[in-house]
Amino acid sequence: MPPTDAAVVPISMLWAHILALGFFCSYVGSLYVAKNARVRFSAPDARYRVRPGSRDDPNVIRARLTAVTIACIFTCGVVCTLVAQSTDFKTNHPLAIMLRILGISWPDSILSCLQTPLLFLGPLYASYLASVLPGQANYSLERDFFDVFCTWIGFRNYVWGPFTEEIVFRACVLSVYAMGGAGRGKMIMFAPLVFGLAHVHHAWEAYNQPGRTKAAFQRASISALFQTAYTTLFGAYTSFLFLRTSSLVPPLTAHIFCNIMGIPQMGGEMRRFPAHKKSIIAAYVLGIVLFSGTLMPWTATPGKESLYWRAPAEFRRSMEAYDRPSAGV
């Protein structure tokens, strides 16, 4: 019997919004519910390289990583429950369905993971001019790799933070919107807003750390607005990658890469290398052109439609297609 609309849309759009906000609250709230994960504000002390109780204190980092891991498991559990209520787990393959819905699979093409480096062609060229790329004269394996990635701060910024955020704000949030019947346009619009809101709480730390002054409030407000706008825009891009590929790998690699590169600083790069101003501008422009021209073809899924890129009415049929015994896990 063909799937009914009730099977295709197991929850309402209102509940999709509520669950998305609930996922945001569980992730961010876990950082403040757990006692050891809360940041303590204190004056700078020359005796400490990292202030005890600050967000970069290894003890705080470990507690926060544990907290967001629990939140991540909780949100995945909610999605599993929704799928269990709308899918016949007795005759189908629940593990295959859940892995596919959460994007735990390799993309059809590795090119989808190279989109972001293309966009950063300008900053990468400036790094080349500075000879700080791997294998160049100013690159140090100890300083630029081990001292960056093999620390609790690096593990938070470049490994576990991006992974848990992508699970919650991409896989889980987008899955509930898909189950709520949202089209890809609405999903790309709604999901990034939740991701942007998840970074507003950093303003509280920026306001308290230097003292609750008027100047601190102004700086924290400006920083919060910029970070929310930037993360919302970035969230729209990574949501697009997830919807196009039905894989968490492309948005995760984009997230890690952007965290490593930071915000592009074309002006600073041209001041540092005045003799290469034109070539730096050309690299930025070329990166944008190549990124725009390859965005659709490099994220295509040859031979089949993406689970999420289909219209809402096809979502359940897509799940059933991936759940056939021949598909495996």
Results as ranks from 00 to 15, higher is better:
L119I: 05
T253A: 14
P325E: 09
H17M: 12
T299A: 11
I104A: 13
V60E: 03
P302G: 10
V78Q: 05
R49A: 15
P117C: 04
S54C: 10
L129K: 11
M189W: 15
A63F: 07
Y125C: 00
G122E: 05
L95Y: 10
W298K: 01
Y158T: 05
P2M: 07
N259H: 14
R317E: 15
I73Q: 00
G29E: 08
W204C: 02
A229W: 09
V173L: 03
C76K: 03
L31P: 00
S131V: 03
M261A: 14
S221V: 07
E142W: 11
L129S: 07
G180W: 10
T238K: 01
T301D: 04
I11Y: 07
W160P: 00
W152H: 06
I18R: 03
A224Q: 08
A37Q: 01
A182R: 02
V289R: 04
R310L: 05
R51G: 01
W309T: 01
G183V: 03
E314D: 15
L65W: 02
T253Y: 04
W106M: 15
C25I: 15
K90Q: 14
L141Y: 12
H17S: 06
D57W: 00
Y32F: 15
F163V: 14
F146V: 10
K35M: 10
R324A: 14
L141I: 11
G267S: 11
R184Q: 04
E142R: 13
S326Y: 06
T164W: 09
G181D: 05
F257S: 06
I101D: 02
M1C: 03
